[in-house]
């Protein structure tokens, strides 16, 4: 699904991606983890074409993405901070994205699922953070795409919405989609992810299943496993 080779990116003096290689197959829920500043968001943005790498190549579904944009119609991206143009009403935002994407969607169903109907005529600037995140989720899941990238999807969600989100993710998974998630909530990752990628200093430090990670670090749960991973690297 995604093939990254020898990826380098520097912001000023800060080498964020340092020769990163990565292969992600089709299907599965992959959690991208790593300490702050390890390059998670940069990697995702590189895949989305929002950040242009200094060196290296990225292929999405077997096509190099350099200087192209059409491949993005096969990706649903959920950004970390759900901030939208304030003057626009929720319905208009949906209409606009649908107009831009021009493909079948299931907006109605998702709006109902997250109880957004009362907010459809409101301007986005008047919504609470949680509601905005729900809008964000609807926008992400309303199109049928083989690749989903979710950046901190749980931020600001109430438990009920969180459960619905998880259900949605699993549902997409069962349809054979590839889902890339970053999150700080280890519980959430442990519960949902098939595979974990651990980024450190701009490289892949670990890639494998949650079980493999636990085995490697000899820890019982993911949170501790990650913590152990972090300390061992700090020691090393």
């Amino acid at each position: 699904m995604i093939k990254v080779e020898n990826l380098y990116k520097k912001f000023g003096k800060n080498q964020v991606l340092d020769g990163l290689d990565l292969q992600i197959g089709k299907g599965g829920i992959i959690a991208v983890l790593g300490p702050n500043g390890s390059g998670k968001t940069t990697l995702i943005k590189c895949i989305l074409g929002m950040v242009i790498p200094d060196k290296g190549s990225i292929e999405v579904m077997d096509t190099p993405i350099r200087r192209t944009w059409k491949y993005r119609s096969e990706i649903n991206y959920m950004p970390q901070i759900a901030d939208f143009p304030g003057n626009v009403r929720v319905r208009e935002l949906f209409d606009m994205i649908r107009d831009l994407r021009q493909r079948p969607d299931r907006q109605e169903e998702l709006v109902e699922l997250f109880g957004l109907e009362p907010h459809m005529q409101k301007r986005l600037s008047t919504l609470s953070g949680g509601t905005k995140q729900k809008v964000n989720i609807v926008l992400t899941f309303m199109f049928d795409c083989p690749l989903l990238i979710l950046d901190e999807p749980t931020t600001g969600l109430d438990p009920a919405a969180l459960i619905r989100l998880k259900r949605l993710i699993r549902e997409e998974h069962s349809r054979g989609k590839t889902i890339l998630i970053t999150s700080h909530i280890m519980e959430f990752v442990a519960e949902i992810a098939d595979e974990v990628i651990y980024l450190l200093e701009g490289r892949i430090y670990f890639q494998g299943s949650v079980e493999e990670l636990k085995k490697m670090t000899k820890q019982k749960n993911l949170e501790h496993a990650i913590a152990a991973l972090t300390t061992t690297t700090a020691d090393a």
Binding site: I75, P79, L100, R101
Partner: peptide, 11 residues
């Protein structure tokens, strides 16, 4: 934000 929303779209 609007720009970033658009950047992830196929445009």
């Amino acid at each position: 934000e609007f720009t970033e929303l658009l950047l992830a779209q196929p445009i």
